[in-house]
């Protein structure tokens, strides 16, 4: 293609209209904070890794533990938590390992693969966290369903509401179920929006690079 060859001839010798930075400019630049996507992925991932654990620090969540005991599901929850933290720790280790593998000195394809792999680790972790929260909601629902002393736990004047005990139980179950599901969906949506937004360009370029491959 003639025009491209023409440009190529001029490309290197040609005095293009390029800016010229001084030694001082460059020296100041290299100590600025990076705004790269990897840095953002690190920050957001760390927030996502830590966030589920912060819920336990809320006062209302702590008083919730008494209810779990009275619902008779505290043993279940204890075992569940032990497994949960083991898996969570494993995820954090995996994330750290993957993050360390990201190097700007790799070829573009490998760099992109490593970034996407790191991000995928967090994705699986979030899916795992959300499923774990869902199991807790189900456990609480199970507890409400089987507990004999419902009225002591959630006192309410049923006669004034015109409800029978069975109806009251159904209302409670429904409320916990819908509430839990709504919160989890919201968290999921926020997470996936953030995730998609952050690496949209990266994903597009990754696909473009692989187009003729295979």
């Amino acid at each position: 293609m003639d025009e491209l060859e023409l440009l190529k001839q001029h490309w290197q010798q040609e005095k293009q209209d390029l800016p010229k930075l001084s030694y001082k400019d460059i020296q100041q630049m290299i100590w600025k904070k990076s705004t790269s996507v990897v840095r953002w992925i690190l920050i957001i991932s760390l927030i996502e890794l830590v966030l589920p654990h912060l819920i336990y620090l809320l006062p209302s969540a702590q008083s919730g533990f008494d209810i779990y005991t009275q619902l008779g599901i505290s043993n279940w929850l204890f075992g569940f938590n032990a497994i949960y933290y083991l898996v969570a720790l494993y995820f954090i280790y995996l994330f750290y390992k993957r993050y360390k593998e990201i190097s700007v000195l790799d070829d573009s394809q490998k760099l992109m693969n490593n970034i996407l792999k790191t991000r995928k680790t967090v994705k699986y972790y979030v899916i795992f966290s959300l499923s774990a929260a869902l199991i807790v909601v189900l456990l609480v629902m199970g507890g409400i369903y089987t507990t004999p002393n419902l009225m002591e736990l959630f006192p309410r004047d049923l006669e004034a509401d015109g409800l029978t005990l069975v109806q009251y139980k159904q209302v409670l179950l429904l409320a916990v179920g819908i509430g839990g599901f709504a919160i989890l969906s919201l968290m999921g949506i926020i997470y996936f929006l953030l995730y998609g937004f952050l690496i949209r360009k990266l994903r597009r370029n990754h696909q473009e690079l692989r187009r003729i491959e295979v």
Partner: peptide, 15 residues
Amino acid sequence: YRVALNTAITLYRKS
């Protein structure tokens, strides 16, 4: 070349 291009096509997010 490698670092510059990697930054442009992978790491950089337009402000």
